[in-house]
Design a protein around this nucleic acid. Structure first.
Lengths: 245, 245
DNA sequence: TATTATTGTAACATTATGTTACAATAAGGC
DNA sequence: GCCTTATTGTAACATAATGTTACAATAATA
């Protein structure tokens, strides 16, 4: 089919064997301590904060690239990913932050280096189990950490609006696609799940209706033991039933 | 911002001032005679049929490009467009049909011409008033015509699955986004509208429930005159009320 | 003028969702 | 140990949305 051979994983340097003008930006959602979190990259020298992202190898499927990119930042496999929008306005990229970073990394570049040209960004959102993630910086950004969704700082380029759009998509998908559990640990109480829903949708839900609806889906199974620790009746623990996963 | 000047509309030839590796494919839906239709391009010499598509100027917004592309094929302005998915598998493009077309158009090319390389395609669907469209071929395909959705032939590359995905998106959006009227003429009966819904969703709906729901949305207004022509009670004509449009 | 097909809408049935209420109970304080 | 507290599981009822049946109204045709 092609004369090219598969490219090795280019973790040590900014490779050149990528499609130009195209990038993937990932909004990686986690949930912890009653808060939605996003994983963000920071270039400490200039303080630039950005979404984790990456490029597409010339012989790599788009979804595979998204998987690889999120995998590299989280250390996880089999990640729930949803492609939600393409950000393609001319002028959305300010080349200056990238220029600074290239300079700081000692990478030779003139003004028409492909990394400084216009990019069209394909937005993916990922839902991960916060407790399982081991954030890893990349070659460009020297830190990688969780931020409360409500406390996201000013980001590079249009990344703030990418997060906004990802959140909207997540809200829409929540009822249709039954994906919230990707943000939970294996076992949880209905109360936990309700708090997650309330946090994502940013509104209070009535407990009886929520429980009836969720249990009515028939995708949860009770675990033998109950949760204990609170000064009140112990709630059941649930997990998602095997045939559903 | 940039030294480049805006590019003239390149209708006479396949220009070079486009982003490489990126394309837009448009699924243009119409509705006529109780059938959903899609506008398709055909290269008569080899019989290749494909979705209308195009490229993105280096200084053009993505949505503007989609608008331009659909505008050029339909002759319409202010088109309802929805970006629905990006098709980015490696190996989705078979370069041969394009090679034949370039040759037939007398365009010099070797095997690594950018038009023969891998493309990532951004899928848009458009909803248009069938009766208003004047299909126009482009420089590559010498015919442009409506096809019944149920009678779409084998298309170039993965265009059949692009149509499939567009249809799924349209079905999902139908209830949420209230967009069906983009496929109707200005005035129509509730019966017409119901047939459209039934055709899109591919299932029968019960008339009283459908009418109650649609009228309950409060976005229709009755037109003074009624429709006549059938040997039965004349139905009211409706149009979408101004404040809604 | 009767027939036919289809419309507009009422009425009722069923299901889904919103809301109130209350007994059950794990942990902590006394 | 026993009472208090907070929260759970679930029943019961209220309201809203949707599914279904029924029927009078009427434009064209014979």
């Amino acid at each position: 089919m092609s004369k090219d051979k598969p490219v090795e994983n280019e973790t040590g340097a900014i490779g050149t064997n990528f499609m130009h003008g195209l990038a993937i930006d990932a909004v990686i959602f986690g949930f912890h301590d009653h808060q939605l979190k996003v994983l963000l990259m920071r270039y400490n020298k200039t303080g630039v904060v950005a979404l984790p992202g990456g490029f597409i190898h010339k012989i790599e499927n788009l979804n595979d690239a998204a998987n690889r990119i999120v995998s590299e930042r989280t250390g996880l496999q089999d990640i729930y990913l949803e492609q939600f929008y393409v950000f393609g306005d001319y002028g959305r990229s300010d080349p200056q932050p990238m220029k600074d970073i290239l300079t700081a990394n000692g990478i030779e570049h003139d003004d028409d280096h492909w990394l400084l040209q216009r990019f069209i960004s394909i937005g993916y959102y990922a839902l991960v189990d916060f407790t399982k993630v081991v954030p890893k910086p990349d070659t460009i950004f020297d830190s990688c950490a969780w931020y409360d969704l409500t406390g996201v700082p000013q980001l590079m380029q249009d990344h703030n609006s990418i997060i906004q759009k990802a959140l909207e998509s997540l809200r829409n998908d929540l009822d249709n696609k039954l994906i919230a559990f990707n943000l939970m640990q294996e076992e949880f109480t209905l109360g936990d799940l309700q708090i997650l829903y309330e946090t994502i949708l940013d509104k209070k839900l009535l407990r009886p209706a929520f429980q009836r609806k969720i249990l009515g889906l028939g995708i949860l199974e009770r675990v033998a033991k109950k949760w204990t620790g609170g000064a009140h009746k112990a709630p059941y623990l649930y997990r998602f039933s095997k045939p559903f996963l």
